[in-house]
Nucleic acid binder design. Sequence first.
DNA 1: AATGAATGAGTCTTCATTCAT
DNA 2: AATGAATGAAGACTCATTCAT
Lengths: 218, 218, 218, 218
Amino acid sequence: MGAVRTKRMPRAVREQQMLDAAVRIFGQRGYMAASMDEIAELAGVSKPLVYLYLNSKEDLFTACIRREAAALTAAVRAAVRPGLAADRQLWDGLRAFFAHTAEHPDGWSVLHLQARTHGEPFAAEVAAMRAEIVAFVTRLVAVAAREAHRDPDLPEHEVAGLAEALVGAAESLAAWANATPGATARQAATTLMNFAWAGLGNLMRGRMWTPPAEAEPA
Amino acid sequence: MGAVRTKRMPRAVREQQMLDAAVRIFGQRGYMAASMDEIAELAGVSKPLVYLYLNSKEDLFTACIRREAAALTAAVRAAVRPGLAADRQLWDGLRAFFAHTAEHPDGWSVLHLQARTHGEPFAAEVAAMRAEIVAFVTRLVAVAAREAHRDPDLPEHEVAGLAEALVGAAESLAAWANATPGATARQAATTLMNFAWAGLGNLMRGRMWTPPAEAEPA
Amino acid sequence: MGAVRTKRMPRAVREQQMLDAAVRIFGQRGYMAASMDEIAELAGVSKPLVYLYLNSKEDLFTACIRREAAALTAAVRAAVRPGLAADRQLWDGLRAFFAHTAEHPDGWSVLHLQARTHGEPFAAEVAAMRAEIVAFVTRLVAVAAREAHRDPDLPEHEVAGLAEALVGAAESLAAWANATPGATARQAATTLMNFAWAGLGNLMRGRMWTPPAEAEPA
Amino acid sequence: MGAVRTKRMPRAVREQQMLDAAVRIFGQRGYMAASMDEIAELAGVSKPLVYLYLNSKEDLFTACIRREAAALTAAVRAAVRPGLAADRQLWDGLRAFFAHTAEHPDGWSVLHLQARTHGEPFAAEVAAMRAEIVAFVTRLVAVAAREAHRDPDLPEHEVAGLAEALVGAAESLAAWANATPGATARQAATTLMNFAWAGLGNLMRGRMWTPPAEAEPA
DNA sequence: AATGAATGAGTCTTCATTCAT
DNA sequence: AATGAATGAAGACTCATTCAT
C-alpha cells in the first residue's frame, strides 16, 4: 500500500514525499489519529528517517500546514491581477481559491479542519495565512469604496467583520462545493459574488439594514 | 481542579455532570486528545462510573453532540416568532445564535470544530442539526422572495448555495466574535444582516452580479 | 435475557437460581471470562445479593463444582446395584455417567474443563470426586479378578494406571459423544465396555502385552 | 525472575524467546489469567516488542498452540517406523508421546487444557492436531485387523469411537504420569498397551462384550 | 430480603520516539 | 543516506467488590 521503497534520493525530494504522505494522512485521519508509522509507510521510508528530517510529529504537522498554506495563497495570488477592477480581482481570487481547495482536499482539510482543532502551535499558523487573506479582501473593499466615491465612514471594525464574514462564507462554500456532486468552483464563486458583492455595494451606498429599536430589559 | 467528589447522587444528575465535564474537555482538547481519565476527574467521579452510564468514548461524545445541538436549536427556535416579517425572524434568530455560542464556547467548539473533524458517526450528527438550520433559513428566503413579489425564478440549487453561504458566514462570525474582545452578539448579527440581507434583497430584485465573459482554454 | 426479577424468595431457592446461572456461565465462558455481572443478570438478581449469599467469585465457583460433582456421583451411584456382577455394575455406571454428562453439558464443562484449568483451589475439588470414581472402578477390577480366580498379583500401581486409563477414556468419550451428532450414551458405553472389559479380561488371565527388548543407549 | 534483558537480537531469535515465555505462562496460568506483562517480563523484553512481533494476545496464543502441536506430532512421527508391525508402531508412538509430554508439561498443558477451554479460534487448532493423531491410530487398527485376517466387519463409527477412547486414555495417562512421582513414560505406555491392545485383539477376533437385554420403558 | 450507586486495580493495546549500525 | 531493533508512557475499557439504604 505504501509507496515503493526507492533507495537513495536527495534530501529535498525525500522531504517532499514525506510531506505528501503526511498531508494525506493528517487530512484524512486528523492530527491525533494519524500515526507516524502510517505516514512513514505511505512515504515509503523508515520511521527514523522521518524523524531525522522532520524532527517530531508536531514539527511535521507544522511543516504540512506551512506548505499547504503557502500553496494556497500562491494559487490565489497568481490568479489576481492588481491592475483590474476590485470586483474582478475578488472574482478571480475566489475562483482560484475554490479551484485549489477542490484539487487539494487533503491540504484543505489540514488547513481548515485539522489545524484549527488543535491548540495554539497550529492554529496560529493558519491564523497567519487567514489574516493575510482577510487583509487582501479588506484592501479590495477599500478600493471599492473609493471607486464608489463613498466617504470612508464605514467604521474600521465593521469592515473587519465584513471581511471575516466573506472569508467565512467562502470557506464554508468550499466544503459545500467539495461535498456536493454537481457544484463547480465557478458556481461557488458566482454564488458568493452575488451574495457578497451586492451586499457590499449597498453598504457602500450607505443603505444599511437597521435593527429594530427594542425596549429590552437586562 | 476536579469537582469535589460529592457522594451518592441520582443517575440523571450524575449524567449531566459527566456531560458538562465532557463537553468542556472535548471542546478544549478535541475528541482524540481528550482522555476519559480527565473527563471523569473533572466530573468528580471515577472512570468506571462514566463507562457504566455512558458506555464508551464514542457514545459519550455522541451524547455531548446531541445535547449541545439540541440546546442550540432550542435557543434559536425560542427566539424566533413565526408571525413576524422575514428579516425580523432572521435577525432574532441570528442574535440568539450568536448569544448562545458566545455563552457556550465549549459546546460550540464541540459542534463546529470537533465533531466535524472526526468521521461519519459524529459528523452526521451535526449535519442533521445544520440541515435543520439551513432549511429554516431557506424558508425565510422564500418568504422574502414572496414579500418582494419576485417571480420564483431563483434556481433551486442557487438558493441552497446562498443559504449555505449565509450559515457559513454566521458560523465564521461566531468564532470571530468569540475571539475578538470588543465584539458582541448584537454587532455580529448586525454585520451579517447588512452583509446578507442587502445582498439577498438585490438578488430578489433581479440584480445579479455577472461574471466577465472569458476566453478560457480548457 | 436474564430471568425475570421475581421478588422475595427464600434464601435456599435464590441460591439454587444463582448456582444454575453460574454453572451455565462458567461452563460456557470459563472461570476467568465469566463475569459476576452476567451471572447476576442471568440469575435475575442484583450483584450485591450474589455476594451476600456466596461471598466471592472463588466461593461461587467452588460451590458450582461441589454441586455438580455431587450430582454426577449421585447419578452414577443411583444406577449401580452392588449385588450384580462386576461387568454389569461397570456397564450401568458408565451408562449413567454418559447420560448425565450429556444432559448437563455445562456442569460437565465446569468439572472436566474449567475447574482443571485453574489452580489448586479448584482442581483439588474435582480431584476428590475423580478419586472417588477411580476407587469405585478399582474395586470393580478387584472383584473381577476374584471372580476370575486370578492371584492378586497385578501390581498395585498397575491397577491404578488401568483405572486411570479407563476413567480417562470415559471422560474423553463423553466429550466425543456430546459433540458427535449420532452418538448416544448407550453407544459410548458399549464402545468403552468392548474396549476396556476385554482388555481387562485378558489381563486377568495373565495375557499381557510384552514390550520388545530394546538395546537403547542413554 | 524475568530473563536478563539481552540487547539487540535478530527477530527470529526474539520470537522464540517470546514463545518460550508465553507457553510457560499460558500453560501455568491459563489463557485468560496470563498477562501480557508477565509474558514480556519473562521473555526479557518490553511489552510493545511482543505486540510488534506477535500482534495480539490471541495471535500469541495461537502461535503457541501451533508451535507446540507441531513439536508434539513431530516427536511422535519421528519415533514411528512405518515398516514395522502395527503393535510395535503403536508402542513406539505412545512412548514418544508420553516422553514428549513429560518433557514439555507447559506445552502439553497449553494443548490439552488451555486451548480446549477457550472458544473456537483455539479449540479448532488443537482439534486439527488431534484429528491427525486419531487418523494415525485408526490406520494402525485397520492394519491390525488385516494382520489378524479379520473380515472388515468392524463398523466404521465403532472404530472411530475406539480410536477416540484410546487417544483419550493416552491423554489422561499423560497427565497422570506427569503428576505421579514414580511413573515413567515407559510404564504409561506399557499400561496402555495392555489395556488397549488386548481389548482390540479381542475385538479383532470377534469377541465383543454384549450388553444385557433390557426392558427399558421409553 | 434486596439494590442503586460507586470505585481501586488491573488488562490489552498503541504511539511517539531513540539507539546502534 | 537509511534502517532493524527496541521502549517509556499513556489510554480505553472491564471487573470483582463494597457502601448506604
